[in-house]
Nucleic acid binder design. Structure first.
Length: 750
RNA sequence: UGGGGUAUCGCCAAGCGGUAAGGCCUCGGUUUUUGGUACCGAUAUUCGGGGGUUCGAAUCCCUCUACCCCAUCCA
């Protein structure tokens, strides 16, 4: 299958390599409270795709912890979607509700550990006590109940002794946690509602944060992949699994950005609004971005999967252009589907010099699609062509039929228009034409040149079909809601005419109506008596584009955004004193001095190193640029090296024993091992090579190996300097003095 | 405003100190009995802004800015 690397796959590969897991297990865990949309397809593609490619398993699990919203009909829709996309879940479909007994036991355990308590605050109080993003929360007065009391209450909650809202079970974490999700999150709530699977067996239901991580653990999931909005929930995910000290391996959560597509809405709420408001016909309305909608419209699973692969996976919120999806379906269908002739808006043409009738053999596929198959087209005196394919007053660049310009009937003869018949209102009702008998397709000896070939159907045996032409559901690129609905998103053409083979022979269910687009026999409403086709997507239309371009001249006023800098916090007087000392006395540049002066730990570190080595500038640079990173990564204090070691490192740098490149390498090693830098240099032989006589031959070799780049460099591509320096450095194991290499390369390439 | 994220072409997106991948869109051209397809070519001296470190920075450091997520007994 089509694969590209992304950050999730990188993690999976590393975990496999390090032996963290023997086998990868992922899961697709939808809540069965709505139909899956193309965003789910992305998630399915990611989870099943990773499992497939790394020899693992992917589970399909219904996250059914909220009995008030979920329903079995959605379970079926979810299963259908996964199957339709071509994936098989491991084992049977799983349900979080299957784990209710186990989850209950885990909750009991948490209570016994004193890490969970039954709270009896009202809903409003709980919300109030939680505080806000800027204010700490306060703990409930019920948080101090004894383990026994909690146990008793929780068991009675389970038995159904209390009404909804009377009590909840909460984790005891931290009401002042900056992450609001960690302010004693709810674990269980009472619900009177029957659950679609467990019926009235339970009167308490676990919350997502409690159920999800444990369900993953129970199923031995390794990588729990979800969308960005759960980033804050990761802390609880880890808290639950860690607090219960479950035996490893355990799953970890990773987040990716959910899919958005312009001119569409993806949220269940908005989708439901469209359905319930009657803006669309149901979950499978072809205008909806639901999987059922795309399927009904005629999209293939392959095209959806290709799309998911093309858009990639990252952590940045983004909106993918619909044209990317449209490209995928066109690209897929182009290779697969028979071409037929259909006239959407018929205009009668009488060929006055033609008598009788004949059958024309016409292949289903064009020369560039390697597929076999053909049908007969019957030709006679009366035909229909597309109304748009004739113009009395053609615009410039019009290739189709005009009074002066003949045109070819696809697979048939060339015709010329002789007369235009109009009704009382001046509307064209019919064309009188003549054909050229020696111009038949395949044996054309007429020598007439035409600019285009158009579709047509014979009046005598064309079949009437209904065609449903779908346009985007919203007029706004980023729709808010129903107020942005496109009133013309569905056009039903009742009397389109199509060549009979399509509805009699039925060579396929998807077709390209030539020069129009791709169409699909509607799987629900189609009947032999009343054939109905959905438009899947139009063909690219460069003529349409050209026409539009001449009419609307879009001049975009491109203004440059000016970014305003915010204010920087002022320094304290001590910091200021330090800063002044650094800049004037020690001659540090102000940036470095600023960073140093503002961080007490850092400046102290600096002073210590400085007392051992009088190299203020290099020491400061090293500390600000390298040591600071280590401090951040290791939560300050636990550094594995001392100021003395930094001084030794900088000393070697000052003495030009090592290059700055090696210094960085060295620093990293030292930070990891705590080893003495001088010792590392000695052991690894990292002494810098500064002798030009030693370096020159290596450069010569690099130059000899890359004549193409030498030419480019000489032609003025100065960026290639880095390439040559890099190659030379690589050849010496990083030991060559880069400054000298640099000079030498420039000299040699001059 | 506390915390957590994210910023690379019109839209996605690689890139992890050494020549700014790729796809879509757009624009040219060639082939074509689909104004389709295919094929060729063009399109980021620059990576949200400003500084710093380095021979060399999209990548490391500082700082600023913008956007997204979190205060459901939803998931």
């Amino acid at each position: 299958m089509i694969e590209s690397k992304n950050f999730l796959r990188t993690i999976v590969e590393e975990d496999l390599k390090s032996g963290k897991y023997k086998e990868i297990v992922t899961r697709f865990p939808p809540e069965p409270n709505g139909f899956p949309h193309i965003g789910h397809a992305k998630s399915i593609f990611i989870n099943f795709g990773i499992a497939d490619d790394y020899g693992g398993h992917c589970h399909l699990r219904m996250d059914d912890t909220n009995p008030t919203k979920e329903d079995t009909k959605y379970v079926e829709a979810l299963k259908d979607a996964v199957k339709w996309l071509g994936y098989e879940w491991d084992g049977s479909v799983r349900f979080t509700s299957d784990y209710f007994p186990k989850l209950y036991d885990y909750a009991i355990e948490l209570i016994k550990m004193g890490r969970a308590y039954v709270d009896s605050l009202t809903e409003d109080e709980i919300s109030e006590y939680r505080g806000s993003v800027t204010e700490h929360g306060r703990r409930s007065r019920y948080a101090d109940r004894s383990v026994e009391e909690n146990l008793d209450l929780f068991m009675r909650m389970k038995k159904g002794e209390f009404a909804e809202g009377e009590h909840v079970l909460r984790a005891k974490i931290d009401m002042s946690a900056p992450n609001m999700k960690m302010r004693d999150p709810l674990l269980y709530r009472i619900r009177d509602t029957d659950h679609f699977r467990t019926g009235d067996e339970w009167s308490i239901y676990p919350m997502y944060d409690f159920a999800h991580c444990l369900s993953d653990y129970i199923e031995e999931v390794t990588h729990s992949i979800c969308t960005l909005e759960f980033e804050n929930n990761r802390d609880i995910y880890n808290w639950v699994l860690d607090t219960l000290s479950l035996k490893s391996p355990r799953p970890y959560q990773y987040e990716f950005a959910r899919l958005n597509i312009n001119y569409a809405v993806m949220s269940k709420r908005k989708l439901l609004e469209l359905i319930e408001g009657g803006y669309v016909s149901g979950w499978d309305d072809p205008r909806l971005p639901t999987i059922a909608g795309y399927r009904r419209k005629g999209y293939t699973p392959e095209s959806i999967l290709t799309f998911c692969d093309q858009i990639g996976i990252a952590k940045a919120n983004s909106v993918v252009d619909v044209s990317q999806l449209e490209f995928c379906i066109r690209d897929d269908l182009n290779k697969k589907v028979p071409r037929v002739l259909c006239v959407l808006n018929p205009l009668k043409v009488t060929i006055e010099n033609y008598e009788g009738s004949e059958e024309i053999d016409a292949p289903y596929y064009p020369h560039d699609v390697p597929k076999e198959g053909s049908r007969k087209l019957s030709f006679s005196r009366e035909i229909y062509i597309e109304r748009e394919d004739f113009e009395e007053n053609p615009p410039k660049g019009y290739y189709r039929l005009t009074l002066e310009q003949p045109v070819r009937l696809r697979h048939g003869y060339i015709i010329a228009c002789k007369e235009v018949i109009k009704d009382a209102n001046g509307n064209i009702t019919e064309l009188k034409a003549e054909y050229y008998p020696d111009s038949k397709s395949g044996c054309d000896t007429s020598g007439i040149k035409v600019k285009s070939a158009i579709q047509w159907v014979s009046a005598a045996d064309a079949k009437v079909i209904e065609v449903r032409v779908y346009d985007r559901l919203f007029v706004a690129e980023f729709p808010e809601g129903v107020e942005d609905v496109n009133p013309n998103s569905l056009k039903v053409i009742k009397n389109a005419l199509i060549e009979p083979a399509v509805v009699i022979q039925k060579p396929d269910v998807r077709f390209q109506f030539e020069r129009e687009g791709y169409f699909y026999a509607d799987p629900v409403d189609y009947s032999d008596e009343k054939p109905i086709f959905n438009k899947i997507v139009g063909l690219k239309d460069s003529w349409d584009k050209k026409k539009k371009k001449t009419t609307d001249k879009r001049a975009k006023p491109q203004e440059r955004k000016v970014q305003i800098d915010g204010e920087v916090a002022p320094m304290t007087s001590e910091q200021q004193t330090l800063f002044d000392k650094y800049t004037t006395e020690l001659k540090l540049n102000s940036e470095v001095a600023n960073t140093l002066a503002r961080d007490a730990y850092l400046s102290e570190f600096y002073e210590k190193a400085l007392s051992l080595l009088k190299s203020p500038v290099n020491l400061a640079n090293m500390i600000v640029n390298e040591v600071l990173r280590e401090i951040k990564e290791r939560h300050s204090t636990k550094l594995r090296f001392t100021p003395g070691q930094i001084a030794e490192l900088v000393k070697m740098l000052d003495e030009e024993k090592i290059s700055s490149k090696i210094a960085k390498q060295l620093f990293e090693e030292m930070a990891k091992s705590g080893e003495n830098p001088v010792k590392i240099v000695k052991e690894k032989g990292l002494i810098q090579i500064s002798d030009p006589a030693q370096i020159a031959p290596i450069i010569d070799e690099v130059i000899a190996k890359n004549p193409h780049n030498v030419a480019k460099f000489k032609a003025g591509n100065r960026k290639l300097l880095g390439f040559f320096v890099g190659q030379t450095l690589k050849a010496t194991g990083g030991r060559a003095n880069p400054k000298i290499v640099n000079d030498l390369v420039v000299k040699k390439l001059q």
